[in-house]
Simulated scan of single mutants.
Amino acid sequence: MSKKWADDESGAFKRQVSSFQETISTNHPVFKPAKNRYWLYVSLACPWAHRTLITRCLKGLTSVIGVSIVHWHLDEKGWRLLASDKNAEDTRFYQPAGGISGASRDHSGPHGEISNESSRMFEDSSFDPINHFERLSQLYYKQDPNYSARFTVPVLWDTQTHKIVSNESAQIIRILNSGVFDEFVDNKFKDVNLVPPELESAIDEFNGWVYDNINNGVYKAGFAENPIVYEKEVTNVFRHLDKVEAILKEKYDNLVSQYGRDDSKSILAKYYTVGNQLTEADVRLYTTIVRFDPVYVQHFKCNFTTIRDGYPHINLWLKNLYWNHDAFKLTTDFDHIKLHYTRSHVRINPLGITPLGPKPDIGSL
């Protein structure tokens, strides 16, 4: 894909503002909570879409909101899906991994033989059983025939009105976490709150600087087309990774003082970024950190160091989320992540060669 992502004059990356930002609530005149009414369109490669898949799992909504996964290759026409398969099991779209069997695959093998046009159902992509569209753009044009911006994921779609509720990931995860779907989930999920009132201000503050300097920071470094801009942005990314490392080191040291160094189970049970419980702050940071070593180090030139070699406390936090919480592991597909970035960004990687490393994709706990 030869599309430029940077401003022509400054060479700095500019992120598009989401066009659709409605919500779902019992008081909303149109978008009210219901089971099997809403549908997510996501990419397993995209960190913004990944947030929504994790939240959907953590809140027990895998049987309430279905998911279609776009192909990992983003071509000149945008995201695509596979042709409709009338014989596929509908239950596939309500699985924790969103209808893709990524968690059961070995992600450390070679990728070179996989074509950008590969059409392995429920591996490269799923299809759209709602509208039977083969392009994400068709959703946007159905909503607005004059839509002229980029066709981004995630998209939260209302199957009743055939409208986009939201294409803003931060808003979608707040909707999913809000409790509006609690009547449709098992009781064990009803107490899950990723934004508890007593931590909300701390979560918002943490998310604010993490988003600008780390989540979006790696893109500002990677898509920069001016060396001065790149050097400024990549330095800023690692300055703020240092800040996260310091926060987690202090957290870890305090937990060691409380439980003893050998009680790893008790330590990891409270080893999170904000407070002593899993929150939205962890979800939003995770989707960048899990991509850092496999993609951002080489592809976005964020190569001061790796997470596994340079940030021991962030690395422990990452492995704790991945190995001890299925919502993170089952929605993380390293094949989609590696193939998407290296095959879709032709200006950055014109030969489309996908590096095989690092090995393993993520270390053991």
Rank of each mutant, 00 (worst) to 15 (best):
119 S>Q: 10
130 I>T: 02
122 F>M: 07
125 S>P: 03
121 M>C: 00
115 S>N: 03
106 D>T: 06
124 D>M: 09
100 I>Y: 02
110 P>R: 12
97 A>E: 15
111 H>T: 10
133 F>S: 02
99 G>V: 00
134 E>N: 15
125 S>K: 07
115 S>K: 14
126 S>D: 08
99 G>H: 07
113 E>H: 15
98 G>S: 05
130 I>R: 11
116 N>M: 10
99 G>L: 13
129 P>I: 09
121 M>E: 05
118 S>Q: 08
112 G>R: 08
109 G>C: 05
109 G>K: 01
110 P>Y: 09
128 D>E: 14
132 H>A: 04
96 P>R: 07
134 E>C: 14
97 A>N: 08
103 A>C: 03
102 G>L: 02
97 A>Y: 07
127 F>C: 04
99 G>M: 13
102 G>C: 08
99 G>R: 10
112 G>E: 12
97 A>G: 15
133 F>P: 05
101 S>I: 09
97 A>S: 15
108 S>Q: 06
117 E>A: 07
128 D>G: 05
127 F>Y: 11
131 N>W: 01
108 S>E: 10
124 D>K: 13
100 I>K: 01
120 R>T: 08
125 S>D: 06
100 I>G: 01
115 S>M: 09
120 R>C: 06
107 H>I: 02
130 I>N: 10
98 G>F: 09
133 F>C: 14
110 P>W: 01
128 D>A: 04
130 I>Q: 04
120 R>V: 11
113 E>G: 04
131 N>C: 14
111 H>D: 13
121 M>F: 09
104 S>C: 05
117 E>T: 08
133 F>M: 01
113 E>I: 04
107 H>L: 03
110 P>T: 03
116 N>I: 07
133 F>T: 00
110 P>M: 06
119 S>Y: 10
111 H>F: 12
106 D>K: 08
120 R>P: 00
112 G>K: 11
127 F>K: 03
116 N>K: 12
120 R>L: 13
108 S>K: 03
101 S>E: 07
121 M>P: 03
98 G>V: 02
114 I>C: 12
108 S>I: 02
102 G>R: 06
96 P>M: 09
110 P>D: 14
117 E>I: 00
108 S>T: 06
131 N>Q: 11
125 S>F: 10
133 F>Y: 15
115 S>W: 06
123 E>V: 15
103 A>R: 06
113 E>D: 15
123 E>L: 13
114 I>M: 12
120 R>Q: 13
120 R>I: 08
103 A>Q: 14
106 D>P: 01
100 I>Q: 03
134 E>K: 14
133 F>D: 00
129 P>E: 00
119 S>G: 02
132 H>K: 15
112 G>P: 02
114 I>Y: 14
123 E>C: 04
128 D>L: 14
101 S>P: 00
114 I>Q: 13
114 I>F: 14
96 P>T: 08
118 S>G: 07
107 H>G: 15
97 A>H: 10
129 P>F: 07
119 S>T: 11
114 I>D: 15
127 F>E: 03
108 S>Y: 00
101 S>N: 09
99 G>A: 07
132 H>S: 00
101 S>F: 11
113 E>W: 02
121 M>H: 04
